[in-house]
């Protein structure tokens, strides 16, 4: 029991620290690229900027509902299935990958549920629109993950990571890795994590939700993005495997932040895709077909190797 408590506390600390560093990096990178070397707020806050932002959310009036509460719970629960090191995992099961996929879908659906009514009498609010886009972006990611499952013949994170002791999965599945990365970059653009308080395409946007409920929604958005990056690192880049003398946990951190910073920079060079038509053209005419091709090729190899024993 004490061991579980200890693990829970460790995981909570790691998640909180990562969230803090990610928020800081997002604001710092954006501000460094600005003309005047930083938003005034970032300069005032410095390293404590995420904390100031957190407090500023608390100071506002909030309309909480049951969906927001559930969203918070599930955004934390998702970290129970992903292993941070071989021993530091709360729920160690064989089908942890399936559970992770399920958790992501639940978070997106809860986000949708919490924002289905809007004060602007639109068909959908800004948050709902974002979430539907993100939901459709998860399709290519899941197709790539299924391909990984076929390659490694496993549903569990730990097994897949341990199978990468010779070559990382990126060697077998380069296309899948690219698809995951592109989807994550697009998600970052959709969430507009680097733009605080900027109104959306039509000027509605940020008025929806305030105070602690808005903070939880932001937290869930961070969770989706960071968890997907974490999943990509585990599935494609060897996860917490040692690299020569460098310890696995340190390698995991390096890989995670490399992918995260790369996604941030790539997002800076891209335009936004909040426009529905354009978004679906990119997703359904480029990403999903590419993911399907990747899946079909992998399936072909899987059948040839495992059923007919050709390879």
């Amino acid at each position: 029991m004490l061991l579980i408590l200890k693990k829970t506390i460790y995981i909570l600390i790691i998640v909180a620290l990562n969230l803090y560093v990610c928020t800081y990096l997002v604001s710092k990178l954006s501000s460094r690229m600005e003309l005047r070397r930083g938003y005034r707020m970032t300069r005032v806050g410095g390293i404590g900027f995420p904390a100031i932002r957190f407090l500023s959310y608390l100071g506002k009036k909030a309309n909480m509902n049951i969906w927001i509460f559930l969203l918070f719970i599930f955004s934390l629960l998702i970290w129970t299935v992903a292993p941070i090191s071989p021993n530091l995992v709360l729920v160690d099961m064989d089908s942890s990958l399936m559970a992770a996929i399920l958790f992501i879908i639940i978070i997106i659906v809860l986000n949708l549920a919490s924002q289905l009514t809007t004060r602007y009498r639109l068909i959908m609010g800004e948050v709902s629109r974002k979430m539907i886009m993100v939901l459709s972006l998860t399709i290519p990611i899941f197709l790539s993950i299924v391909s990984i499952m076929l390659v490694n013949r496993s549903f569990g994170f730990k097994e897949i990571v341990s199978l990468q002791h010779v070559y990382w999965n990126i060697v077998y599945q380069p296309l899948g890795f690219i698809i995951c990365l592109v989807s994550i970059v697009l998600m970052l653009k959709i969430f507009r994590l680097n733009k605080n308080g900027v109104p959306g395409a039509a000027g509605f946007g940020e008025h929806e939700g305030n105070g602690i409920s808005r903070m939880i929604m932001k937290f869930s958005e961070y969770t989706i993005v960071t968890f997907l990056i974490y999943m990509t690192v585990l599935l494609y880049l060897g996860g917490y495997k040692n690299l020569f003398f460098i310890k696995g946990e340190i390698m995991l951190g390096i890989k995670f932040y490399t992918v995260f910073i790369f996604s941030l920079f790539a997002g800076k060079a891209l335009g936004n895709i909040e426009d529905y038509r354009l978004f679906f053209r990119i997703n359904f005419k480029f990403l999903i077909p590419l993911a399907l091709i990747n899946f079909a090729v992998t399936l072909g190899f899987f059948i040839a190797r495992n059923i007919y024993g050709l390879l």
Partner: peptide, 9 residues
Amino acid sequence: ILDYDIARN
């Protein structure tokens, strides 16, 4: 508006 941060800066 189109979120091209680099071009904007």
